[in-house]
């Protein structure tokens, strides 16, 4: 499971072993807080990773990434 070391208001918990890198959450995130990482998971995909300070702003905890993830790789958004 991927954990960001930075501190922020919200945190997206990701099961990186389930992620297949379909990028739906990457596009869906209004704040562009999610991006595909460089590491490779057991399935052979680049799993998504989370940063507190995305291209458009901080995570607002809107849960959109959780709703659109078809793999149940995004387990939820919690308060950091």
């Amino acid at each position: 499971m991927y954990r960001s070391v930075l501190k922020g208001k919200y945190e997206v918990i990701i099961n990186t072993e389930r992620c297949k890198g379909c990028e739906i959450c990457v596009h869906a995130c209004p704040q562009q807080n999610l991006e595909l990482g460089d590491d490779v998971n057991g399935l052979g995909y680049h799993p998504v990773k989370f940063s507190f300070h995305g291209k458009a702003g901080d995570c607002t905890g809107c849960n959109i990434c959780y709703w659109v993830c078809p793999e149940y790789a995004i387990l939820g958004v919690v308060k950091a």
């Binding site: 297949k20 399935l43 078809p70 939820g76 919690v78």
Partner: peptide, 28 residues
């Protein structure tokens, strides 16, 4: 803080659908 996982799925199993397939979404 830990997130509570759904008990309806095996915690360590990944589904075997193609990336982006909504079958997984429906199952979720």
């Amino acid at each position: 803080m830990e997130v509570k996982q759904l008990s309806t799925f095996f915690p360590n199993a990944a589904n075997t659908y193609c990336p982006g397939c909504e079958h997984g979404l429906l199952l979720k």
